[in-house]
Design a protein around this nucleic acid. Structure first.
Length: 259
DNA sequence: ATGACAATCAGAGATTGA
């Protein structure tokens, strides 16, 4: 089973590039972030025509997440537990039913800039809620994963110019510590389970020719429970997508599971 | 220190992103 995560930066703006990539990469399951659309306006036909089931958790203008799956989706939950006041659409989870049932959680973790400030406080609080959900996934010994745009540069080797991000909410020591605190509960980060190579990025800013200069960062991640990590066979990043017409500023990250 | 670029909503320019 091939599962991908892709921050598309607006479904309307990606009406060509996203289906083009789906047709070529043929993922079974896709976790989308930043659909920037309400549920009613999401162009589900584009995906249903290709054999995908579609579940969305959108909001107007900003954020918004979705799951596409060629296999049936069950027990869909929208919104990260832990704060009833939180109106931002950043979390969706469901069980993909195939040979092995896989609980997939799609997330769009807050950016947090500027730091310090209320947006950074929201980021750290959101990460604490994420840690709570993560603990439960482990306690249940599920074949489960949490994937998406974490807005976290885990280590210096995950940025072309780490010094440029030193005081940024994506790389501050407190951000990295919060990410490690989740990881160290017992998750496997898929790309790093396969390679410790530098120069692997999933985001390049639109500005200042960042793509052309390969000035990227790696902020889109897959975290796997032990039961899920046992099924991992491959992981990759489709960086070539960034060179296409009207690209998102992120590219797809994917894994292959024997599930 | 700032802007560069893109998307959204709206119908100009502010807001957000990373």
């Amino acid at each position: 089973m091939k599962i991908a995560t892709f921050n598309i930066n607006g479904i309307k703006a990606r009406a060509q590039a996203l289906p083009d990539w789906l047709d070529e990469a043929q993922p079974d399951v896709v976790l989308l972030q930043e659909i920037k659309s309400v549920d009613e306006a999401f162009p589900r036909e584009i995906f249903e025509d290709r054999g995908y089931n579609v579940e969305t958790h959108g909001q107007k203008s900003f954020n918004g997440v979705a799951i596409l799956s060629k296999f049936p989706l069950e027990d869909v939950v929208r919104g990260l537990p832990g704060d009833d006041e939180d109106e931002q659409a950043r979390w969706i989870e469901a069980t993909v039913v195939n040979k092995t049932a896989v609980r997939v959680c799609g997330l769009y973790l807050p950016n947090g800039n500027p730091a310090p400030g209320p947006k950074y406080d929201y980021k750290l609080a959101w990460m604490e809620r994420l840690r709570t959900r993560a603990k439960h996934l482990l306690q249940n010994e599920e074949v489960a994963l949490m994937a998406g745009d974490y807005n976290v540069i885990p280590q210096d080797l995950d940025a072309a110019r780490p010094q440029a991000w030193e005081t940024d909410a994506l790389a501050l020591p407190e951000t990295r510590a919060a990410f490690r605190r989740i990881l160290n509960l017992g998750f496997t980060e898929a790309v790093r389970a396969r390679t410790h190579a530098a120069g692997l990025y999933s985001f390049w800013d639109y500005q200042a020719g960042a793509w052309q200069r390969n000035d990227g960062i790696r902020i889109d991640h897959f975290l796997l429970t032990p039961q899920c990590a046992d099924l991992l066979s491959e992981a990759g990043i489709d960086s070539q997508v960034r060179d296409r017409e009207k690209p998102s500023d992120h590219v797809p990250v994917w894994i292959e599971l024997d599930a």
